[in-house]
């Protein structure tokens, strides 16, 4: 149907998340219409990003430098570390401009179904970091899914010996499943209630 180079391009585009066959076809045809320079810039950007962007050696946020901008920023509050799942969460939190502390990127959630055990996450480096830097507080900003809860439980338990641990509701998934809601939080709060004595 498509000439081979075009078919290959569509095939590659289709591997991207959220891109179905129709979108891949539209993107490919669009790319063919653009001037050479633009496409070269795109290709170069892809190669550069892949080659140069790595993880911050302190917090594991994506960066082109050994240590990321946030970790190097002298105006940030070093007594606070916010634990998030991935770099997208860092970016989301940064956009709010509310938070002025540091981050630590976990790199995923504990999930035996996906073969992810605690050792595969950046948990050990976090413990070492907390031990070394002695922050006053670690904020766990992990989505309250089953896997998120489990990871929170695990990390919280490990950190409690070193520092104050708090958590915020974060990353509420949109659409999809039956979700976390006020009712659920309330129901849980009611569950733990005791009789007044």
């Amino acid at each position: 149907m498509y000439t081979l180079p075009l078919a290959r391009l569509i095939e590659q585009l289709q591997r991207l998340p959220g891109v179905g066959p129709k979108t891949a076809q539209r993107l490919a045809l669009y790319i063919l219409q653009r001037p050479d320079t633009e496409i070269q810039a795109l290709a170069q950007a892809l190669m550069d990003a892949k080659e140069k962007v790595g993880q911050c050696s302190v917090c594991f946020h994506l960066t082109a430098d050994p240590i990321c901008e946030i970790c190097l920023d002298p105006t940030r509050d070093r007594h606070l570390i916010c634990l998030v799942i991935d770099s997208r969460d860092v970016i989301a939190l940064e956009k709010t401009r509310e938070y002025r502390g540091l981050y630590h990127v976990l790199g995923g959630l504990i999930s035996p179904m996906d073969g992810i055990s605690p050792e595969q996450l950046n948990i050990q480096p976090l413990i070492q970091r907390v031990h070394r830097e002695r922050p006053e507080e670690v904020i766990l900003a992990i989505s309250p899914s089953v896997e998120g809860e489990t990871t929170t439980l695990y990390v919280g338990h490990l950190l409690k010996a070193f520092t104050r641990v708090t958590r915020i509701a974060f990353g509420l998934p949109m659409g999809g499943d039956l979700e976390y809601a006020d009712e659920i939080t309330l129901a849980r709060a009611l569950e733990g209630r005791r009789e007044l004595d």
């Binding site: 504990i110 035996p112 179904m113 073969g115 055990s117 605690p118 089953v146 489990t150 439980l153």
Partner: peptide, 28 residues
């Protein structure tokens, strides 16, 4: 499902899941 996956994965390579990790899923 997660707890079963943990039990199965260790069965597959005939090891026992770490007490720590299993305890986590026991709690959940």
């Amino acid at each position: 499902r997660q707890r079963n996956a943990l039990l199965k994965s260790h069965h597959a390579n005939s090891t026992r899941p770490s007490q720590e990790e299993l305890a986590l899923w026991d709690a959940q």
